[in-house]
Design a protein around this nucleic acid. Structure first.
Lengths: 346, 346
DNA sequence: CTGAAAGCGCTTACAG
DNA sequence: CTGAAAGCGCTTACAG
């Protein structure tokens, strides 16, 4: 029995000659579409793009027969200390698969995004891993056309696209952090929240609320202050809580960095952790094992998330479906020295 | 006047056809040398390799006419918190030059190094930046043959090769840290040193010694304890110093991480920083602004070092000579809250 | 807007 | 160990 003529060729193995034959156009025309030139009729372009996508076309060359695979890992900014954790996981898994990891930051500047896209195309990247990043919808679309698979780590919102996402169990983490403080006997528990536009912030907040509700503790809106995950906001947030007529006896910071900022605010006032205030963070950055005192926090498996992201893009690149389009990796309470029962009321 | 036939063509623009003509061999032969095949006579190979190097040959293709530049940034391990600082500087400068940054870790495993070399070749990297990394001499040689420029950041020792290196003013930093403590009135100053096989450790140690000598303070060998830059070694090193019959009143840790470990050792004994012990670190990692207390330290311009490394490889890639083969960027004392005059003797 | 033709840089059998 | 020949995937004028 002859091979099915209409079946897609193996991913990444198809040539423009093959695509041209199937589309019923010439090789130069396909070349023009691939290179994004303007002198192609919309109808032809659409037909060719469909075929390109269907067959997972990747630009190759007789000269460079087996180009090493390249994965793009894209951050908004590289100043976040958990970036290195994700890089570590991604590099490890990519290396194991024989792929190189191209790290970049787009700095939120949308002008950069277009340039980044050109670079991506020029280096013929085999897959893109986006971290908490708002890559605009038109760029998603361009990646689709180029046939470059995409996965999002720590999604900002629920992507409207058929893009796999990998996150952490943020709600469970918020719940566990708050339950831990409740179990120590705290009833007035402050929250320094993350930016509400981020999905992970809302989930952590809801976990906090759910734990309080389950314990029958009324939610006091004045105990919830906004933050942006950076230490400065933890510092000011903690000061706001301490200036309350009736301050909390414990606080949950939605990031380790904010927890560190909060501890500094306490130290400046001569308050001790955990004797005067218990603090729990979120992330378990390597450095908080060595903060003073060592921080009780919610461990987020950043390196594992990076590894899973690599396996998922690679799967996509081979034309396979991911196991699941939305994955949440488990979080875990790590108890160290920054939490204790509340001081007895004298 | 005709163009000089023997002059090298512009870097990166030469083809194997051109090299073949100059070497007086056929195009396939050059192709074999470029791809490291074994079936070429040593004499022919040597002649072709010389020409390849001289002209800065880079593999290209008619199909991929202007491949995006790619720079390889190589760490021993990605677990160091200052890795992200260097990545940030490198990514920024590389991005500005339109190049992608491939980050990898070779984990000291020498088996990995060979594989990494193959990947580097396959992805046709345009330059390599090595960070505190022992890339074995044979690999240096391979890079030379491939014509891939190399620069070393924070060199482990004095490289025996004609490789540009970029470091920090470690000796001056060690001097400044110690002078700061002396100026506060400390006379018994402990040192938690870095691994002596590293150039930077020895320079920091010598700076410490020079400052003490200049102040007429005798060096007490029992006040110098070994460390490996990680927090654990700062923790145990500090305990060793505290168990001395006459402990120091201040200590200089040759890395921020060791300083954090030392502070934790002090905290566990109920000793306060800086009241009972002054501590100064080295690096100025972003996180130590938020340690408890905020750490006095020596700022090492890691991101700037990364940026300079990029400019230097790129220069090399264009066939230009670097401004200077050995560069040391300035370090700077940053005074925060972990240092104070010694407690008055009662 | 499209294709036939020429050409690019490189590689792979093949023959010696 | 080496080269003449054929071929690869892709692109670039050029003509219509």
């Amino acid at each position: 029995m002859a091979a099915d003529e209409t079946a897609p060729a193996p991913r990444g193995k198809v040539t423009i000659t093959e695509i041209a034959r199937r589309a019923g156009v010439s090789v130069p025309t396909v070349s023009r579409v691939v290179n994004g030139r303007s002198d192609v009729s919309p109808a032809t372009r659409a037909r060719v793009e469909d075929l390109l996508r269907l067959h997972g076309y990747r630009k190759r060359s007789a000269a460079l027969p087996s180009r090493a695979a390249l994965l793009d890992l894209v951050f908004n900014d590289l100043d976040s200390p958990w970036a290195v954790e994700i890089i570590r996981g991604v590099e490890e898994a990519a290396h194991a698969a024989g792929a190189g990891t191209v790290v970049s930051a787009i700095h939120g500047r949308s002008g950069d995004a277009g340039e980044w896209m050109r670079n991506l195309r020029a280096r013929a990247s085999d897959g893109v891993i986006l971290v908490t990043s708002a890559l605009e919808p038109p760029l998603h679309e361009q990646l689709r056309i180029l046939g470059v698979p995409l996965v999002v780590v720590d999604p900002m919102g629920s992507p409207a696209f058929d893009t796999p996402t990998i996150g952490a169990a943020n709600w469970s983490g918020g719940l566990a952090a708050t339950e831990h403080l409740l179990s120590l006997g705290h009833r007035r528990i402050g929250l320094i929240a993350g930016p509400p536009r981020l999905l992970c912030s809302r989930a952590r907040f809801d976990g906090y609320r759910a734990a309080l509700e389950a314990a029958g503790v009324a939610i006091d809106a004045s105990l919830v202050v906004p933050g942006d995950f950076h230490p400065e906001s933890g510092f000011t947030g903690c000061n706001t809580l301490l200036d309350l007529p009736e301050p909390p006896t414990a606080l949950f910071a939605a990031s380790d960095q904010m927890a560190l900022g909060a501890i500094e605010a306490l130290r400046r006032r001569g308050l001790r952790v955990p004797e005067d205030m218990s603090v729990v963070g979120f992330d378990d950055l390597p450095e908080v094992r060595w903060s003073a005192p060592p921080l009780t926090t919610i461990r987020q498996p950043l390196a594992d998330m990076g590894q899973l992201a690599v396996r998922t893009v690679l799967r996509l690149a081979r034309g396979e479906r991911p196991d699941s389009p939305r994955v949440e990796l488990g979080t875990e309470l790590v108890v160290r020295a920054s939490t204790a029962p509340p001081a007895p009321v004298l």
